[in-house]
Nucleic acid binder design. Structure first.
Lengths: 151, 151
DNA sequence: CCTAATAGTTAGCCAGCCGAACAATTCGGC
DNA sequence: GCCGAATTGTTCGGCTGGCTAACTATTAGG
């Protein structure tokens, strides 16, 4: 073990995008650890959350919410359905579409993982006051919406 | 065009990780647009920045800085070298290792893209005061370091 | 009523990264 | 000094996760 000259990333640190990515990767790692125990992927978990919150939505709406292609939802929904976390119900007014709904197991699974993740996030944010956490969330929203302040 | 019931993601919005990812994706999209004009990928640009800032570093150090595997740096460094943005110099004290240095072209390329990106980020953060931007950066750092406040 | 649009699906593809194995070289304990 | 262990860069194969294009079934609309 030699003491190698420390590599710095000051130039990249000037970019908010870089700081965002690094912070996200830390949380994502913990999320992966939790999800692995329940045999879920990040996108599957997100999909489950969307379905829990929006019972009866069709796959296209799910794709929009997750910002992925419709074709990509198929495999995700297949997996969730195969594990009986959600159901593909038929919608009587449109025989092409499915009405996705979470099963009891699915809702319980979401609540379980949700609780674990909130614990993890609280740990990571333990250095921030409640006001600082709110400010962080607000700033992230501002960035996400392109800095639009008009309207 | 039908007015479909709006899908909400309130459950996911309670997670900082989700908000981080969404905010990052918005910036990443713009970054991709800029980098495409210069035929670079995000990781290549990050690598270039690290090399500009740390002249003479070996590939292993680059891998550590970028948090990727050593084997992955090879293709990245190959590409940057092939475009004469960096050089693989020999290091006299260790014939196994390379000393990576950016060329003039490489430094100019970095400065160019860096300027464009700062413009983009300023636009996205135009709804934030300087103090709010600093607070954001600080909060991201706090999260990244696991909420460690001791020491 | 017939064309266009929409929901879901399938198949093939590609980027981007990892992991294991490898040669060359250096380090470290004795 | 010497030999096994560690390190640097590399190659190769593979996996993951998403995309695009093409298809079927169904619905909407002029």
């Amino acid at each position: 073990m030699k003491a190698q000259p420390q590599v710095t990333d000051t130039l990249l640190r000037q970019f908010t995008g870089y700081n965002l990515k690094r912070a996200y990767l830390v949380i994502e790692t913990e999320l992966h650890r939790i999800l692995k125990d329940h045999d879920l992927r990040v996108t599957s978990f997100s999909a489950l959350a969307i379905i829990v919150e929006n019972p009866g939505l069709p796959q296209t709406a799910l794709a929009n919410a997750l910002q992925i292609e419709r074709s990509s939802t198929v495999v995700i929904v297949d997996a969730l359905e195969g594990r009986e976390l959600i159901q593909r119900n038929k919608v009587e007014t449109d025989r092409r579409a499915y009405a996705l709904v979470a099963t009891l197991r699915g809702r319980q699974m979401f609540e379980k993982i949700s609780g674990l993740m909130h614990e993890v996030e609280n740990r990571f944010q333990s250095g921030l006051t409640p006001a600082e956490r709110d400010a962080l969330t607000g700033a992230l929203r501002t960035i996400e919406h392109g800095g639009d302040t008009a309207g």
